[in-house]
Design a binder for these strands. Structure first.
Length: 792
DNA sequence: TCCTAGCGCTTTTTT
DNA sequence: AGCGCTAGGA
């Protein structure tokens, strides 16, 4: 097969790459057409460090792929000399496809385009022995990690209750994200776990990994760092190989990834990082926004290109998002603009409770659908997965087709992990973690006691568990029952290993699942769930066909933990805000904009101001997903952990610019009155809460009173959505719906007796703007908006 | 060894 | 409210 990018000696063919390269020099190349001046600059500044600050919807991927095409077509480097890293497999795949489209069929020729972890693995396998591994090391998933850490904790006689393996895992993960080996962990942090034994446990865990010839996800990078630092020749060879480097989503890199990139970029310094500091939403898993903020400092003389022309959203949406994110400090600062029309304003709608919120969204979707909008162009973006349920319930009731994106991943399902356990063990009999996973699944009467015995034997003889089992069944140390069960198992594995030589790996998998009794186990269960599991197993075996052998398949699984996304069909998407990054929809529904939920209280508690800013970026990401319509909702009552809580609107609602936002209310008839005639399931608040259903609600009356009595004719300071002004159209009690966090005076005072439609009578304990803290006679202390209470 | 009742926890998620 | 894990009993 000829490599069209072998430029030596240059043999120009008309229309060939070399010809295109020459054309590139004169600036008349097809792939550059249609780029705006900034994009073009980002593409054509090929040499030296470049930082591309690419706002939402500004053509980031296009710049990245065109840049690669340009580097290749201009003869600067061959595809195999370009390092291009992404975070997700999806992004890598997309980039491959798009480069292929730009250049013909070359994407295969880019062996160094992939995720950080995939590329790290590739490098590590080549030099594994230099860091104490063999090149066929196994990659552990989170499940295995936890199990291993449990063992380490037990071995140290530490109380698992007080110091759960999960917690240790997150500590170690954090350290690895920051590029810290056990000896480098700061003393203060090391002592935060298990009374000072954190670092020791970390070291013990690393030792166990080496014993098992295994690496966890963090190691894939951390061991790369070690490799590069301890073996300069290796580092240099990669520095020379990678003539050009590109990094996608740079704002999401953690310290380890940053160090890795910096080591490699020290070679030729042709590194281009593309990212958006305003879309950094993974700080909680180690991403350092600082990396992007510091780029110019790290690479003096770097070219910085700002992409600010947005091709996605209409004017109001963009303006609302821009105004919101401007509340963050520590930004590099971009101002997105668009030539598109102003379009529809962003809407903010208050609902009585989360059920009503779901109804409003469902109805809006149906209304849009009636007008001919496709469901696939709509998405509901939630802060936490727990919000999905109510939305789904509502959609089911309405018969609205939907799909949830980002649920449990295929390879994380119990039955798939079990099946993988069998395959891993066939592939590598020394895989102790796999052995433990499946030794008693299905039940073979091999319980803790037997496993414990095996462990002791294996440890003493320094052999893997499978080998220990083989030897132990020849002794009489085991009771007869477990002994014969274990004999069956080991002989079965011996047989399967043999068959592996001659059989196709997917057929072997089927055979194993059959003979081991694993499929039987689920068949016996005869529930809807077990039927689904069997279906998944079939799909699992089918998916193996695409790989040349078992080893390749297992590598794929450990690195590409992906569900085959059920595409197709006209469906509304439901996903978390995190899951929505990088996607776009005509209409975006954003429910749950309430203090505590969004911004999320826990983010605030754990990370303070930084946490708040990250939440705000998340809000920004949410709004900027919308092409034509962004619809924000908040509910006054929400069930949290099964308990009804009263909530107040998110401060982010307050931070939206008045000019681009329309505050609406639940349409008349909501709450069980009028038009709907009980057509929907009905909320428990139907009778109790005719909220927003007429001009005579308590809230409306209160709003009117306020408007009349506010000094300065209704332009209360700080209140963005004053009732009484612009009272045209459907704006009703919006002045009361939207929380005014500061500066507004309430007509209520501490000590006033009030009546709340749901909580009954109570006494005001504190007043903060239009938020009241009330001690209810029956319901206890709650914070509510004043529009929901009446003076008594 | 297996089953089950009760306890505690509950953001976001990739690789 | 719901789920997963643990302990304790059959």
């Amino acid at each position: 097969m000829t490599d069209p990018f072998a430029f030596d000696p240059p043999a120009p063919r008309p229309g060939g790459i070399a010809a295109r390269a020459r054309a590139a020099a004169s600036g008349a190349v097809a792939y550059l057409e249609g780029l705006n001046p900034e994009q073009r600059r980002a593409v054509e500044t090929a040499d030296g460090p470049v930082l591309v600050l690419a706002g939402a919807g500004t053509g980031k991927t296009r710049v990245l792929t065109t840049r690669i095409a340009h580097i290749i077509a201009s003869g600067r480097a061959r595809p195999s000399e370009i390092l291009a890293v992404t975070f997700t497999n999806k992004a890598a795949r997309e980039m491959k496809e798009r480069i292929g489209m730009l250049l013909g069929t070359v994407a295969e020729g880019m062996p160094w385009l992939g995720t950080f972890h995939a590329i790290g693995t590739k490098i590590l396998r080549r030099h594994a022995e230099l860091v104490g591994l063999r090149s066929d090391f196994t990659i552990l998933d989170t499940d295995d990690q936890i199990r291993l850490m449990k063992q380490v904790i037990q071995a140290e006689n530490i109380d698992e209750k007080r110091w759960p393996a999960r917690a240790l895992a997150s500590f170690i993960d954090g350290w690895k994200n920051r590029g810290l080996t056990p000896d480098k962990v700061p003393a203060g942090e090391a002592s935060a776990f298990a009374a000072g034994r954190g670092a020791k446990l970390y070291a013990a865990y690393q030792q166990r990994l080496k014993d098992l010839n295994a690496a966890d996800f963090g190691d894939l990078l951390l061991e790369n760092l070690r490799l590069f630092r301890e073996h300069e020749d290796v580092l240099r060879s990669y520095q020379e190989r990678f003539r050009y480097m590109l990094v996608d989503e740079y704002q999401d890199t953690n310290v380890a990834q940053y160090l890795w990139l910096r080591l490699l970029a020290q070679g030729r310094r042709n590194v281009a990082c593309v990212g958006d500091d305003d879309q950094s939403i993974y700080g909680w898993r180690g991403a350092e926004v600082d990396n992007i903020l510091r780029f110019e400092h790290d690479f003096p003389g770097a070219t910085v290109v700002r992409l600010e022309r947005n091709y996605r959203s209409t004017g109001h949406i963009l303006a609302a998002a821009a105004h919101l994110i401007a509340h963050n400090e520590g930004r590099l600062g971009k101002t997105l603009f668009t030539d598109d029309e102003a379009g529809e304003k962003v809407t903010v709608t208050g609902a009585w409770d989360s059920e009503e919120e779901a109804r409003l969204i469902g109805d809006e979707i149906e209304a849009l659908q009636t007008k001919g909008h496709s469901l696939a162009d709509m998405a509901v973006l939630v802060r936490i997965s727990a919000q999905m349920r109510e939305i789904e319930d509502r959609f089911v009731t309405l018969g609205l087709p939907y799909r949830v994106i980002g649920g449990p991943r295929f390879y994380e399902r119990l039955e798939i992990r079990d099946a993988l356990g069998y395959l891993r063990l066939v592939n590598n009999p020394a895989d102790d973690l796999a052995f433990e996973r499946i030794v008693n699944t299905p039940k073979r009467g091999l319980g803790d006691a037997t496993i414990e015995q095996l462990h002791r034997y294996a440890r003493a003889a320094r052999i893997p568990l499978m080998e220990a089992a083989r030897r132990m069944i020849e002794t009489d140390e085991l009771k007869p029952k477990p002994r014969s069960a274990l004999r069956d198992l080991t002989t079965a594995f011996a047989r399967w290993s043999q068959r592996a030589e001659e059989m196709k790996h997917n057929e072997l998998a089927e055979l194993i699942l059959e003979e081991s009794g694993y499929t039987d186990m689920w068949q016996k269960e005869r529930t809807a769930e077990s039927a689904g599991r069997l279906e998944n197993l079939k799909e699992f075996v089918r998916s193996m066909e695409e790989f040349p052998d078992l080893g390749a398949f297992l590598e794929h699984v450990s690195l590409v933990m992906e569900a085959s996304e059920a595409e197709g069909g006209d469906k509304v998407s439901i996903m978390t805000l995190h899951g929505a990054k990088g996607l776009e929809f005509d209409t975006v529904f954003l429910p749950g904009w309430e203090e505590g939920l969004f911004p999320n209280q826990r983010a605030l508690d754990e990370s303070g101001r930084a946490g708040l800013e990250e939440e705000r970026r998340l809000a920004y990401v949410g709004i900027t997903r919308a092409r034509r319509r962004a619809k924000i909702y908040f509910a006054t009552n929400r069930r949290i952990h099964g308990m009804w809580n009263s909530t107040i609107p998110s401060r982010f609602v307050d931070e939206l610019p008045e000019a681009n936002v329309e505050v609406t209310e639940a349409p008349a008839g909501y709450g069980g009155y009028g038009g709907y005639g009980g057509g929907f399931g009905g909320s428990r608040f139907d009778k109790a809460a005719p909220f927003g259903s007429s001009y005579s609600t308590p809230g409306w009356q209160r709003a009117q009173r306020n408007a009349g009595s506010t000094p300065g004719g209704g332009s209360a300071p700080g209140g963005r959505f004053d009732a009484g002004r612009s009272r045209s159209g459907p704006m009703l009690i919006e002045g009361e719906l939207v929380a005014k966090s500061t500066g507004t005076t309430s007509s209520f005072d501490t000590g006033d007796r009030v009546f709340h439609i749901k909580f009954g009578p109570g006494t005001i304990a504190a007043v903060d703007g239009n938020k009241l803290t009330i001690d209810f006679d029956k319901a206890g202390r709650k914070m509510v908006l004043e529009s929901f209470v009446q003076r008594v």
